[in-house]
Simulated assay, not measured.
Amino acid sequence: MKTMLQGAYESVLRVQDQSDFREEIIRFANGLGFGTVTAMLVFDHALGDSEFISIDNAPSNFHETFKNLSMGRVDPVMQHCKRHSLPIIWNQRTYVDCGQGELWEEQAKFGLCAGIALALHLPEGRHFCLGVDRDQALPSDPASLTQIVAELQLFAVHAQESAWHVFTPQGSPAAQFGARLTPRELECLRWTMEGKTAWEVGTILSISERTAVLHLNNAMHKLECNNKHQAVLKALRLGLIR
């Protein structure tokens, strides 16, 4: 298995399109002993909304069922991945202990009885989640289970690089936002970061206070923020200002 999995790390880095990526994560999951796999890219936006791109091989009727259950808000595995970087090893007990036993019963009908999931929380408000599921219990031997978790973590690091490339061909959020802002708008954000008022920014840049405000408002709009302080924080997080 080790040789096959080593090849999976290299293969997923060479994918050329979304179909290739899906095939590689399914092949990896199957080699690890799991029938179902889900990879998810998440973008956090400034106004609190998030954008999701999901790739999986779950049955179509599974999606039809759980779309109506607002699953993400109550699923303990998804909630764990939202808040933590450590993998979660889950089974029926995981759901029963948090009062979601019925949810487990529903998804078990589709062969999702036990599994492992993890999330990589990356800069620029990006997250990559990877989970593998199967219709039987996980190995009881701690050493075997630890090895599976380690293989999944290593594969996730490789897979996320390809996922961003093939599913977001326009580039990273930093590149997208950076292309929108003008040099003068970035200058106004930099001086605002230093605690300067719009009048002081205008004086430093030899422009009027009104023009400085206009540049800041434009930057706020392009960064999808409600005020200049949020815009500064987002620009810092994206690496647009330092």
Rank of each mutant, 00 (worst) to 15 (best):
V12A: 06
L138S: 03
L214R: 15
L103F: 07
S206A: 12
G131V: 02
L214Y: 14
R242Q: 11
H63T: 06
I241W: 07
S206C: 09
C98Q: 10
T38S: 13
A174V: 02
D133Y: 09
A175Y: 05
A114S: 15
P139D: 05
V213F: 07
L240A: 02
G72Q: 03
A8M: 14
L189Y: 04
Y95C: 08
F28L: 09
R93M: 08
R237L: 09
H221W: 04
R126A: 05
F21T: 00
G178T: 02
E10N: 12
T65K: 12
Q176D: 03
D49Q: 13
S19V: 12
E185H: 10
I55F: 01
E187L: 14
I25R: 00
G111W: 05
F155H: 06
I55E: 00
W199M: 10
A175E: 14
M193G: 11
M193E: 13
R180N: 01
L103T: 10
I53N: 04
M193F: 04
F177V: 14
S144H: 05
P76L: 04
R22I: 10
P87Y: 00
E194A: 14
Q230P: 01
L154P: 00
V132F: 09
I88L: 13
E209H: 09
Q230H: 13
F21A: 02
F28G: 00
L186W: 02
V166H: 06
Q107F: 00
